[in-house]
Design a protein around this nucleic acid. Structure first.
Lengths: 190, 190
DNA sequence: CTCGTTTTGTACTGATCAATCCAAAATCAT
DNA sequence: ATGATTTTGGATTGATCAGTACAAAACGAG
């Protein structure tokens, strides 16, 4: 009935995600988004309402991918301590590697206090991840890996905060050895 | 010999700091800085080299004030566990209050990976704070409040990361109860 | 008071910002 | 092929960006 799109919307969102991830929201211009996606302005504005809308799509895409993998890990059959060790050391590798950090953390710091939509996305993701952690801890208690008296929800919040803390510390100048020491200390607290 | 300044440079830096704190670096325009300081563009550019230079001054001012207070607390005569409880609960109050968060964390996430000058400022501050924490822990070991076998430096990195983690968690949607549970868990790990 | 020096207010720079407009190109149903 | 419909590229919008130019104003030294 009409001319079809010459690009894949999902690929465009993914490319935009990488641009926002590397540069942050404010510092990434619509021109940067055109370059990153390979699309013209018209195609972008015909597909997405605005830069802000595209950012929302990109952030959702990121959250879906990253939290999906994390929850998959947490739902696995490994002992709970191993799950958390893997999870936290992955954050360390992440921060010591490409230095991009975590788009969700970046967005939370840059935007959450002024942008209810972003805050909402992050809040839902936060709850989802903490809940998966809580369930993993409860399973760990049943398996005898975690003392039955511990508050699973509190531990879940603790590990989640630890993950963000590692990222902030890395940006603040902590080296790999320091981050690994933090991970070891956190795991010993379980 | 010439016309004197009609404003106090320190007050201008302080006002600029608040503007950057509330809005971030990119999102704060030079016009915002004029409004916040009450100065004209000429006065600002005659006093500071650039927006970036003023940000550096503002960040240094923030670090000086905040880390100064924190190190004062750590150098005090209170039991070490109390020091860290106070320190972490202050972060919680901070994040649950005005919602501005911490300029150093904000700057680290928004700028550190692209801005060596900011990264340098944060790195020096990181080292200084961790060192103060390490000394407080060593003192705690001598006082019998911390088991002598613990690695003081690792614990210092841990508490510092915890502080950043609380801030990220708060931005991500964690409520006061969750943050306080995290603090309790972290303190129990000492 | 006058000269030399600095600050200050205002106007302005070119660049870039997010977003829109419009006509040409492309496609599908007929 | 034709017509209806959508995408696309490119020019363009007015606003705003960081930073500068310049002259008037304000002061201290002599």
């Amino acid at each position: 009935m009409a001319r079809p799109r010459q690009f894949d919307e999902g690929q465009a969102v993914d490319a935009a995600m990488r641009a926002f991830w590397a540069g942050g929201y404010e510092a990434t211009s619509t021109q940067d988004l055109c370059d990153a996606t390979g699309l013209g302005r018209s195609s972008i504005y015909n597909t997405f309402k605005s830069k802000h809308d595209l950012f929302g799509r990109a952030l959702s895409h990121y959250i879906e991918a990253v939290s999906g993998r994390q929850i998959e890990l947490l739902d696995g059959e490994v002992p709970v301590r191993e799950k958390f060790r893997t999870l936290l050391l992955q954050v360390v590798d992440d921060e010591c590697g490409d230095r991009l950090g975590c788009l969700a953390v970046n967005a939370g710091i840059e935007l959450a206090s002024h942008d209810p939509e972003v805050a909402g996305l992050l809040k839902r993701d936060y709850d989802r991840r903490v809940e998966a952690m809580r369930e993993a801890i409860e399973a760990g208690k049943r398996a005898g890996d975690i003392a039955p008296g511990r508050d699973a929800l509190a531990l879940a919040h603790f590990i989640h905060a630890m993950s963000g803390g590692l990222r902030v510390a890395a940006r603040g100048g902590a080296d790999r050895a320091a981050l690994e020491a933090v991970v070891a200390t956190a795991l010993a607290a379980l």
